[in-house]
Simulated scan of single mutants.
Amino acid sequence: MPNEKNTCHSPSVADLCTAQVWKGRALWRWLYLPLGCALVLNRLQAVVFISLIAWPLPVAAKQLMYRVLLFILGVKITCKMSPKQVAAHTDGCIVAANHISVFDHFPVLAMPSATIMVANSDSPLGAATAFLLFKCSGGTFWKVSDKKMLARRIREFRRRPSGTALYTTPETTINNGHGLFRFRPEMLNRGLPVVPLALRLNVPFGLTANPLHASGLMKFLRLLAMPRIEFEMSYLAPQVRTAHQSDQAFADQIQQSIAEHLAIAACHWTRDDKYTYRSTDKRATR
């Protein structure tokens, strides 16, 4: 188990991880299963078909096509800001969001000037789909596994921040909505304003969006099979680091602002704590 020094005041690391795949009665899930399987096949075809059509189009046309694709995929986005307001609010900023599912990039790519930092995917299907979504939406991504490339792009971003909103998930892992893993400070202390983005996800049938032991492929396919999933996106006030504030203190400040908005705990458990817990947890997914 993780060291006691990392504990927060309320949830344990186990409380931030859900082993069960489903909650509640199974009847409706089994009745829905044939339709869900058909939706997965049709939606994967739609991703390929619409992305290939949108690929050569101008950005404005891509954004329209991407909205159509999200409708086909059953992804609903709720945001109190209009696209123009989001563009003005996030322009030239780093947008730090809590991480709740493998689908989080779907609503983000619908936002203006979105550039997403990605590391890797444990599912080839998920990686291929993400590539097509970038081509369809007009959004861009940075491959952060290459540290030299990341450093160069950060320098370029600082020289010309206008027209870009750089999205990152400082937890570097996925929580279950009951609390936040501690934010890592590396991407939040770049001399740029940071806009906290609080995400909520509503999924039907008692589905757990990120079961602790499930593969990335199965998490992706289960979400794709849902009739409708809803993302609620709340952009909070920009945060600016003070002169005498440490890197971690600034990251904690951003984490706390999101946690307060979502009315959940801002924990000091880290990604490493989660994976240590997962390696010792013997419960089978159900």
Rank of each mutant, 00 (worst) to 15 (best):
I50Q: 11
I50W: 11
V59A: 15
A60G: 07
T78I: 12
A54C: 12
Y66E: 07
V59G: 14
I72T: 04
V48Y: 06
L57S: 10
L70Q: 10
A54L: 14
A46Y: 00
A46W: 01
Y66N: 10
K76H: 11
P58D: 05
K80E: 08
V59N: 15
L52F: 04
L64M: 13
A61D: 13
L69S: 01
R67S: 14
C79T: 01
V48M: 00
I72K: 03
V68F: 14
C79S: 03
A54S: 11
T78R: 14
I50A: 10
A54G: 10
I77Q: 07
C79A: 03
A61H: 13
T78H: 13
W55Q: 11
F49V: 03
L73V: 02
M65N: 09
L70V: 08
V48W: 07
S51W: 01
Y66S: 05
K62E: 04
S51M: 02
I77G: 04
P56C: 11
F49P: 00
A60P: 03
A46P: 00
S51K: 02
I72R: 05
V47Y: 00
L70A: 09
Q63N: 11
V75M: 04
G74W: 12
P56W: 07
V48P: 00
W55P: 04
I77D: 03
I53Y: 11
V48C: 04
L52I: 02
G74M: 14
L52G: 00
L52R: 11
F71P: 00
L57T: 10
C79R: 02
M65L: 13
I77R: 13
L73I: 01
Q63R: 13
G74P: 04
K80S: 09
L57N: 07
Y66K: 05
Y66D: 07
Q63A: 10
A60E: 15
G74A: 14
R67N: 12
A61R: 15
V59R: 15
L52P: 00
Q63V: 07
V59T: 15
L52K: 06
K62W: 07
L73F: 02
V68M: 13
L57E: 06
A61F: 14
